[in-house]
């Protein structure tokens, strides 16, 4: 049963990250998710210090609020100092993460966060986590499975309803705004969705590997897909396959699940990457134009 829970949660998170990541990768904003995932730490620690009785809901809210503040800070520093986005990201996330670590070391006894888990993820702990029990009898499984499922539902519904809008804005921003699409409102919604996904993933797979879940499967799918819908589909499949593969790899080496999943994602990426490069070379040799088949 433990294996099922772990694989289920990682697949749910994997699909969410893959969908959000597809758009982030296409719009070259992937590193933003990295910055956000690092920045939420001080918010969470502060919440533990301020609120006596923490539960999972407050945890997520605190993280989400911090995520929002950090994106605003990145934006603000970029504008004020005239920095490129990546510079202000580097400054802000390291600062916020440092504050988090300092708070954590100052209150080690009162905050039940282990700094290792922030880095390495927490997937193997899922089966040991508190269960959601109704009427003291029915167990609905651990909380993370429900939060990641909820996240997935929100992401899928948004994409299903607004697929054309997302496609239009991501492909041709100026054309969309000439058409009268309220691009800033759409961007805001998308940023909110990103923050939510990053926050929920952060608590399970660790601050750093979020970027892997967000970038690698979409980047792999983008190499051979010719439609956005295909990118979404294939990146989800790649993600799930890596989650299953990663779990067993981790079991075999007795190592971190989240880390192993990332490694499997990386292996899949390199297989596709090398295959595509070889095919391009081969096609060139034969004087054929590169056709992307599915």
């Amino acid at each position: 049963m433990a294996a099922v829970w772990i694989i289920a949660v990682s697949c749910l998170i994997g699909i969410c990250c893959a969908w959000i990541g597809s758009i982030l990768v296409i719009r070259r904003m992937a590193m933003l998710s990295d910055a956000v995932s690092h920045s939420v730490l001080p918010g969470i620690v502060a919440a533990y210090l301020l609120i006596e009785e923490m539960d999972y809901g407050i945890f997520i809210i605190a993280a989400a609020v911090t995520a929002f503040i950090s994106t605003m800070l990145i934006e603000g520093v970029s504008k004020l100092a005239n920095y490129r986005k990546d510079v202000s990201m580097g400054i802000i996330y390291t600062l916020l993460f440092s504050i988090g670590i300092i708070l954590l070391s100052a209150h080690q006894d009162s905050v039940p966060i282990q700094s290792d888990h922030i880095i390495q993820g927490n997937l193997e702990m899922i089966p040991l986590e508190e269960l959601w029990i109704i009427n003291d009898v029915y167990s609905l499984g651990p909380y993370p499975i429900w939060s990641s499922l909820l996240n997935l539902v929100v992401v899928v519904i948004t994409f299903a309803l607004a697929y054309r809008g997302i496609k239009l804005i991501s492909f041709d921003h100026s054309y969309a705004s000439v058409k009268g699409v309220k691009t800033s409102r759409w961007n805001l919604i998308f940023m909110a969705l990103t923050s939510l996904t990053v926050v929920i993933s952060f608590s399970e797979i660790g601050a750093i590997l979020v970027i892997g879940f967000i970038v690698i499967p979409p980047a792999t799918a983008l190499i051979f897909s010719k439609k956005l819908s295909h990118v979404l589909l294939y990146s989800s499949l790649i993600s799930c396959a890596s989650c299953i593969g990663g779990y067993f790899l981790a079991r075999h080496f007795d190592s971190s699940v989240a880390g192993s999943i990332c490694v499997v994602m990386g292996i899949l990426f390199f297989i596709v990457f090398c295959f595509d490069n070889l095919r391009a070379k081969f096609a060139q040799k034969n004087g054929v134009r590169i056709e992307h088949k599915e």
Binding site: D172, Y175, G180
Partner: peptide, 30 residues
């Protein structure tokens, strides 16, 4: 509006037909 060709990323995963159909999108009915 026909923007400059360079204004978009031509590696975007989208087919010719999909791009052309964008002409028929209505901003309030996306």
């Amino acid at each position: 509006y026909v923007p400059q060709k360079e204004s978009v990323d031509w590696d975007f995963p989208i087919t010719v037909k999909e791009v052309v159909q964008m002409g028929r999108y209505k901003p309030n009915k996306l």
